[in-house]
Design a protein around this nucleic acid. Structure first.
Lengths: 336, 336
DNA sequence: TTGAAAGCGCTAACAC
DNA sequence: GTGTTAGCGCTTTCAA
């Protein structure tokens, strides 16, 4: 591992500049010289020391991706897409987990660890609008998610309100009138839960249906167990409903399980719609109708936007980029 | 971001060595000097340039984790654990996806991109025993999985044969005698599928039950859809069985869905056991009995073993470290 | 077309 | 207890 430019230069009887030229495809090199150098590189098995190159160039060729937890399917699938896009652009990805903890998220933004990368794609879950100023950092940053809006950084996100409204309207179109919700967050005004609930209410209102608190299930987290617990509580309350809107797929899958355990048939007695377009939602029993909020586009756009900033688009003001959504219709809530 | 040691030194009217001493907690510094330096650091908002430090020290403080695809729940959960362990040790993790492609796996081992890290935790899925020599690399490497054994690198893995045998015995103990398999790999002798099938056969043999090819389902990949397809084929063949052993949880969940669609009750008509101990296996309907092959231990041990090698345990010969397994008994295959 | 040499920001001998 | 200085391996003016 100790083969350097000098070693190659010595073996090829040229200067290190010439070797460097060969490596960096500098055009004006005499073919004979090039061959001599390439032979020496091959013989010694030389590979450039990226750390040294980075120190010179000020770039690392790596970006950081910070998200709550890879154990959550939504973020695992998002990370898979981001890494894939980054690789296509010749960049590696350093993954940080924040555990959805506000303090850890704020710490991360100040961490010297980020110095190992050229920029950050950041999906916070603990921070809120009051922390927007913390996003005013000195390195390229792309924000994901819906915890903070109109911050000082580029923001790639989904049309939560419209997509949730479309999901609700999908249920209304089948004649469902009592649509329960699983996964609402008490008192929240921003964030995925609040925005999706807002879309749900807008759809009800447009259809002339009143909002009924008794069929809204609250949870703190969005694991499958929370969806199951929330549904148990809704059933215990005794409120009637003929459909369920899970504010994400994981919740919807947990809720659907409890519905079936209770003897209700899905979709005959109760139709279920989720949100996220997870792969696994296609394989539940029944398969889950859901909204794809445009994850693939979000990953692709987050990477390309970050790389543009890194390449020097500093003067451009921060933008908000919104993905298009689509309904993935499956068995848990079929049309008609 | 252009604040360097020199800037701090100038402001504090000391030499850069003194600043460096303060930053690195060198003990013998006069308190007054330390305060002066710390004040200057705070005023300028100095943070060390890790790239420069790395070039000097030859360390990067990062490790690489290469796996097939974060979209596969097993690997996503593994990555989550590895990153968590690494963070506890003050190391960041760069994640590479190889898509289970042998060529990409071999390329990765030679990639200069790895120069950004101090070592690699590598979980191949395309390479085989014939590629063992490619693991003889010049950087610290820890191998995961069961594609290659007795290679030149430390290997952290699970007791596949014993764990699969235990899973099969769990079914036998309930009086099941016709145990179908989902996910076998045609003609494979090494690899997870082959080893687990071997454990299955050992259990049957010990119980005096013959091996019946007609109830062995083959797949190439281990997605949920493959488990479903494999089960459809088994049912179409018309072979009788009262239990199913899915060679991983994802396969088992797909197979279970098809069983239920076909009108069979789980576990009454057919009991199902998976393998991996995925979180989501606890939330299927019915919840899936599975084998936890010791994932948490594997992640922890992979990280600590790699860090030991990085710290210089070069002379120690390559070891194989085996995790303990446990049966997670749930509804799909309850005792008695 | 190629060589010499400066320096990216830091650490660690070695001096004082 | 603190300062000077030589590199880590590379890229890149500037000369030749």
């Amino acid at each position: 591992m100790a083969v350097t430019l000098h070693d190659v230069a010595r073996l090829a009887s040229v200067s290190i500049k010439t070797v460097s030229n060969v490596i960096n495809d500098y055009p004006h090199i005499r073919p004979a010289t090039r061959e001599k150098v390439e032979a020496a590189i091959a013989e010694l098995g030389y590979t450039p020391n990226l750390t040294a190159r980075n120190l010179r160039s000020g770039r690392t060729g790596a970006i950081a991706l910070a998200l709550p937890d890879l154990g959550l399917p939504y973020f695992a699938e998002l990370a898979a897409l981001v890494i894939q896009e980054a690789e296509a652009a010749g960049v590696v990805v350093l993954v940080e987990q924040t555990g959805a903890d506000r303090t850890r998220e704020l710490d991360l933004l100040r961490s010297p660890r980020l110095k190992l990368t050229d920029g950050l794609i950041f999906s916070p879950l603990g921070m809120g609008q009051q922390d927007a100023a913390a996003l005013d950092v000195s390195f390229p940053l792309v924000l994901l998610g819906e915890r903070i809006f109109d911050g000082p950084a580029d923001h790639v996100t989904m049309r939560n309100v419209e997509a949730a409204r479309a999901a609700t309207e999908h249920l209304l179109a089948q004649g469902r009138r009592r649509i329960a919700v699983v996964g609402a967050h008490e008192g929240e005004v921003l964030g995925s839960a609040a925005l999706r609930l807002q879309g749900y209410r807008a759809a009800l209102e447009a259809a002339g249906i009143g909002y009924d608190e008794t069929i809204i299930g609250y949870t703190t987290l969005w694991h499958r167990a929370n969806g199951a617990d929330s549904m148990r509580e809704l059933l215990a309350r005794g409120g009637e409903f003929d459909a369920v809107f899970g504010l994400n797929d994981t919740l919807a899958l947990g809720a659907m399980r409890v519905l079936q355990e209770s003897g209700r048939r899905v979709p005959d007695d109760v139709a279920v719609v989720g949100f996220d377009g997870l792969d696994e939602a296609a394989y539940s029993i029944p398969s889950l109708t859901t909204v794809d909020p445009g994850r693939a586009w979000i990953a692709k756009t987050a990477v390309s936007t970050l790389l543009e900033r890194i390449a020097g688009a500093v003067e451009v003001p921060a933008r908000t980029l919104l993905a298009d959504y689509s309904i993935l219709e499956r068995e848990s809530a079929p049309s008609a």
